[in-house]
Simulated scan of single mutants.
Amino acid sequence: MARARGRESFAIGNVRVRAGSTKAVELPITRLVTGGDVSLPVQVVHGREPGPVVWVNAAIHGDEVLGVEIIRQVLAALSPRTLRGTLVAVPVVNVLGFMAGSRYLPDRRDLNRSFPGSPRGSLASRIAHLFMTEVVAKCEVGLDLHTGADRRPNLPQVRADLDDPRTRELAEAFGAPVMLNASVRDGSLRQAARETGAAVLLYEGGEASRFDEEPIVAGVSGVLRVLAALGMVDRPDDEPAPVSKVARRSGWVRARSTGILHLEVELGAYVEAGRRIGGLSDTFGRRVRLVHADRSGIVVGLTHAPIVNAGDAIVHIAEIDDA
């Protein structure tokens, strides 16, 4: 207990969290037209022992609910009495979109294109600024949890700057089936956080508005393995982390005609360039066009939409780096 009292409390918003304790914090965002307040929910696990400060967030896109469950299970597995360092968990960043089941904010802005934000900008810009100042600025590592879009599930994967040694080490520790060297997008949380010096992993798995067991398990295990690699928790006694396949390029196979789609591949399948991966038919079942892989690699995303138009994304293939 003496060591707990010796460690400083953690300041966030207008509260302080004592070492060796967990505290839920509400960071004010805005007020509804009805007069109700909207706040950003944060849970801080401030360990007794010193160590890294890490954040984990989900639902920057309001319909990407799977990460909320991952964070719930991660928090249930941690104790502030044994944690070394501090975990700042934000299960729902886009609170208004989450309540409405929408990817976007009420003004149709994409929150993940609004970072680092501004205290006097749009609602999206203000939420981004709040997250950057109260969460990112206090942390050295971030885990940003996402899913695929509606009816477009993703294979569990980590997207990160694999040319940065520290980030790559954490990506390897996560142990997702695939880790993809991905460039950052303007206005994204990952871009803004990297510019502060934080190492950021973006996890993709499952699809919007659904809980899928496999990507949840992969996400929970991956987050806990990253915390173990940082020395914040003890390494589990189970099997070592899976070895992730590395990809530096990926691309979507797109429909060349409009039709009803019949896919012949699943997530995680390895396909050779030129292989038939599906077909398009008309409403009477007459074949309109076959669909072939345009590159060799692993299927990391696909569509479940039965009807596609010319140009629609069908299958996402990541080219594996044999080196």
Rank of each mutant, 00 (worst) to 15 (best):
A58M: 06
G36L: 05
L66P: 08
V93D: 14
A58H: 05
F98L: 14
F98W: 15
V74L: 08
R103G: 10
R81N: 15
H46R: 01
D107T: 02
L32K: 00
R81I: 15
I71N: 11
N57V: 07
V17M: 03
P91G: 11
Q73K: 10
R84G: 06
G20H: 01
A58L: 02
E26Y: 07
E26H: 06
D37G: 11
H61A: 13
I70N: 06
R18N: 09
V95N: 14
H46G: 00
V65R: 15
I71S: 09
L96K: 13
E49F: 10
L66H: 13
N57A: 08
I70Y: 12
V56H: 00
L87H: 14
D37K: 04
A24P: 03
G67H: 10
A59F: 10
V68M: 05
P41I: 08
A59I: 04
V68R: 00
G62C: 02
V25Y: 02
A24F: 02
G36A: 07
V56I: 07
S79F: 13
I29W: 03
G51L: 02
V33Y: 02
Q43Y: 02
P106D: 06
E26R: 09
R48K: 05
H46W: 00
A59P: 02
V56Q: 02
T22S: 13
G67T: 12
Q43P: 08
L83N: 13
H61G: 04
G51E: 03
P50F: 01
Y104C: 13
